[in-house]
Design a protein around this nucleic acid. Structure first.
Lengths: 227, 227
DNA sequence: CTACTCTGCCCGTACGTGCGGTCAGTTCAC
DNA sequence: GTGAACTGACCGCACGTACGGGCAGAGTAG
């Protein structure tokens, strides 16, 4: 569902992408430990051996899922950071982007967020871990800059980033992309509380957090390509 | 570490508590799926059969961990809600309590937070799920009351509670109880950002979020008994 | 065009291992 | 005697993955 398979029949990479997509969904639904080759193979009408042929081990498959996910998030972050320069707009963009992903690529997002903890210790996850650290550094830098520029109240940028990431990474446990709440509305509410909490004035908060405002639109454009 | 074992040698319940404590630590360190009877038994110098004798199945063991954890959190919440009446103080207390637990009972807290997702679907978790819902309802009610009383800016209390829980439940991935950051400081920073974000005035925020202020002390007293 | 070979995708099966859970039996306190 | 605590051997199964082979298309020599 997340990405159209390259082409039916014989295509570059064959059913590789198909396997990754299905595996990702299984991880999202059951978690990594309970996801297994047998079920994925059965669902795709192929042999377990095929999966091994393409990916080698289960670990590497997860690593690839994480790396692809982080790669997209990083590209997207750099894209909207290039278009927005005000710290409060940038923070708002990070929140909007974080929420959007839950709808745009629900399976990949849930799979990633469920299993982020493996980035910290598991070997073979170095690349994904580095990507994640880079992303976190982007956010910390924005918070730091904002505090130094006087846009935000002084405070610990790292702690604030963790507070913010927590809210977003926790979404997978409760957010239903098919539910009544539009992601933009969740993002707006989160952004309002966060920016106000960082000391941004009320009228500015309303403008920047607007679910149909320029920041939301900028993020939407940047994230639009995939679907 | 979390609770003193009832008594050495032959005591009421035998080594039951000991088993639960060790199992909890293993779940905290490796996650439920990778925690296993064999390792727990080996570490305690007993047979796997003993564990089965006391708990029946692995599922029930986890359920008991979750229920004990939630029971304590609920008792504690009712205790400080009984002592504090202002909505902003109550919110601050929830944050302080949430952070405190990461230090007071690190293993149990991590075990719980790692595996909360199982509360939503897994059967046999009804009790723990109900406890968790009750806890969430307490928080939502406080946020709702505060908004209606004009202490907080109007907004979706449920979303705000989820934003708040996210920050706290995410802590297990980064917070090190033995690190340089004191839990009270983390709680204070989180509380400041949150209360300001809810529209509480700056001087009030400073007073309520104070890591050595009355709210923090109240929570400390309520939580003190165990450890 | 034909035949031969090479290569990469894919299949089926089989193996080893780890783990949850069973069970018959022993020890020990009351 | 009675029952709870505990043991250790054992079962069955699920799952990751190793392995040998089949098959289709591309490249190449004649």
């Amino acid at each position: 569902m997340t990405e159209p398979v390259v082409a039916p029949g014989r295509a570059r990479g064959g059913r590789r992408d198909e396997i990754l997509v299905t595996f990702t969904r299984h991880v999202a639904e059951r978690g990594y430990d309970r996801a297994n080759f047998g079920d994925v193979a059965a669902e795709l009408g192929m042999s377990k051996g095929t999966i091994v042929h393409h990916f080698g081990t289960k670990d590497r498959m997860l690593a690839e899922v994480q790396e692809r996910y982080m790669r997209r998030r990083l590209d997207e972050a750099h894209a909207f950071l290039g278009r927005l320069s005000a710290p409060d707009e940038r923070v708002a963009a990070f929140v909007h982007a974080g929420v959007r992903y839950s709808t745009d690529e629900p399976a990949t997002t849930v799979a990633f967020q469920r299993e982020v903890v493996r980035l910290t210790d598991e070997p073979g996850m170095e690349t994904a871990r580095a990507q994640r650290d880079a992303y976190r550094d982007l956010v910390v830098a924005v918070l730091q800059d904002g505090a130094e520029a006087g846009v935000f109240v002084p405070g610990d940028a790292r702690l604030r980033s963790l507070q913010m990431f927590g809210s977003l990474h926790w979404m997978w446990t409760w957010f239903d992309p098919a539910g009544r709440l539009r992601p933009a509305d969740v993002a707006a509410e989160f952004t309002r509380t966060l920016l106000r909490g960082l000391g941004v004035g009320e009228e500015r908060v309303a403008a920047v957090a607007d679910p149909d405002g320029p920041v939301a639109r900028c993020v939407a454009e940047v994230c639009a390509p995939r679907s």
